[in-house]
Design a protein around this nucleic acid. Sequence first.
DNA 1: CGGGTCTTTGACATTCCTCAACTCACGTGG
DNA 2: CCACGTGAGTTGAGGAATGTCAAAGACCCG
Lengths: 254, 254
Amino acid sequence: MRSQGNEGGLAQAVVRRLNLLRPLSESAVAALERAISEGLFRAGPGEDLVAEGDPIDSVRVVLSGWLFRHKTLEDGRRQIVNFILPGETCDAHAYLLPAIDHSISTATSVAYAEIKRPHFETLMASERTLAEAFMCETVLNNAIQREWTINLGRRAALEKVAHLFCEIYERLRPVGHADGNSCSFPVTQMDLADATGLSVVHLNRTVQELRAAGLIILRERTLTIPDLDALKSAALFSPGYLQLYRQSKGPSPQ
Amino acid sequence: MRSQGNEGGLAQAVVRRLNLLRPLSESAVAALERAISEGLFRAGPGEDLVAEGDPIDSVRVVLSGWLFRHKTLEDGRRQIVNFILPGETCDAHAYLLPAIDHSISTATSVAYAEIKRPHFETLMASERTLAEAFMCETVLNNAIQREWTINLGRRAALEKVAHLFCEIYERLRPVGHADGNSCSFPVTQMDLADATGLSVVHLNRTVQELRAAGLIILRERTLTIPDLDALKSAALFSPGYLQLYRQSKGPSPQ
DNA sequence: CGGGTCTTTGACATTCCTCAACTCACGTGG
DNA sequence: CCACGTGAGTTGAGGAATGTCAAAGACCCG
């Protein structure tokens, strides 16, 4: 199910992504890979890794699999506020807060590395490029969260869903998790509804509308985008906010 | 209109706020106040300070007045993604991005300090507590943005508006910008609509509903909340995400 | 006094939600 | 091998929340 190799292979998405955010020195890569290999963990699908209100004392880096951040209102209404994709970090600087404001759960089975706060801080102090890369990631998260804000506030249902597909695809691609015009999309329609602020029923109809328009093919947990420009256009997708990846245009990784 | 004093008075909100995020050393406060006094600027209401796509080469700290961050879709639909209140920063670390993903405009006349990137980085390197405080601010911004995400995605109109009122009030209070159960609220209903993702007409009706329920008094750019708990309850407001201010429970400022 | 912006109101249209049921695939235990 | 249960996806019908259009007040300022 999960394409996994040795530890170096597992860390690949992380290194590749951070490297796009900020070029890493060789020693930074080595130190990061060592830290990752020392704190490997796995979790099954549907597990709650972090609950709202928890104090955070470590940094988690996702090696493979999907997670999502979510918040729930008293009466049960739930909002997925973001996904965490392979190579991404469960908030590098969240430990600065006395407690976390949201929950994190796994969507699929997941492999991740956990770096304890003291170790992480030592790492940041000794590897300047690594510290900058993680800073960039936090700033980028902020930009993504703003885009979600306008997505939920001002886009129509069809645009919301199309936009989410565009964003996920564009986030997966630079770390090598897109295959041509397809990518993994291991999320139920209920989760999609909670991510777009729609009801499950309306989300289902919206997805069907996108299918009927030939904009997406979504089946067996795989998303295929026959015409990315068309989908972006339907979504009013403008990739500026993901621009930290801009440098990826140059030397194609691998 | 604006209660303003000397420069030390102007910097007060900034120092107070950062100090709540992370206790500042005396030398940090002194260095910060010096940096602020060296780069004072003013802007009138309705000015665009930063446009989407601009490269950022300085950090701006708001001494008085309101600004807001916003993004606009191709067809003109606009979303205010956050407000920037006195004492807050226009993204301490935004210069890490090649270009900014959103625009920043003034809602009122504004006094702010601009610290050039090299100066700011020197400051961060020499004053550890200051660097940590600004880091906290960035992380807190992230948490606030997530709360806006659920606000727009899952709350009903009345709850959205009530929630915004609660949040703004709770953000103004710790820096001394609330007066009893009132605070300044210098924002048009059009802006409020764009912040809550509603149409102006529906926003207007929602505000009137809140008025009729006795939950708010809003006139002459001033918001009064007769019963904060009642408003919070109507908003399903849970202050956890603003928790960095938790320490403010101790020594009440001023 | 006139023009602008902001707020308010009414009537109507539309999007999206809710409820309820049915299908389909899959796995489990009898 | 089949009955059953469960979770996900789908469909229909009706209703509630919110948007759009249009116009009228309210207020401010030159």
